[in-house]
């Protein structure tokens, strides 16, 4: 049997799953609850601070990671879920799922590099 190339997408899926499980809830808490409810200072998410974060090379890498890895996680999960509910494994579903993740990743990279 041929050796599979699935590890490429699976490692992005696994990495994205890890981030989605550990980092995304914190981000939702900070951006969606803590700051709007005044638990953290409103200033902590101010435009100036966010701009400095997005301009810093390390900040760019962190922002890119929390955007692109969960996108690949979602794409792979959605594809396998479609298969679980009985949709045949086809090029169309695969192109749509992974294509969307790839486009999102490229868009995130382009936007981050232009800041």
């Amino acid at each position: 049997m041929a050796k599979s190339n699935k590890p490429i997408v699976w490692s992005l899926f696994a990495g994205g799953g890890m981030l989605s499980a550990f980092v995304t809830p914190v981000l939702i808490f900070v951006t969606g609850l803590a700051v709007p409810l005044g638990l953290m200072s409103l200033d902590s998410l101010s435009y100036d601070r966010m701009l400095v974060l997005a301009q810093n090379p390390v900040g760019k890498i962190v922002l890119f990671a929390v955007i692109f890895l969960p996108l690949w996680h979602a794409a792979h999960r959605l594809l396998t879920t479609l298969h679980d509910v009985g949709l045949p494994k086809g090029r169309i579903a695969m192109t749509a799922c992974y294509g969307a993740a790839a486009l999102g990743s490229i868009a995130a990279a382009v936007v981050l590099l232009r800041i």
Partner: peptide
């Protein structure tokens, strides 16, 4: 691994 690491091996599992 010839079997286990193939598409029909672990990669067909979707971790249900």
């Amino acid at each position: 691994q010839e079997i286990a690491a193939s598409n029909e091996g672990v990669w067909d599992c979707t971790f249900v």
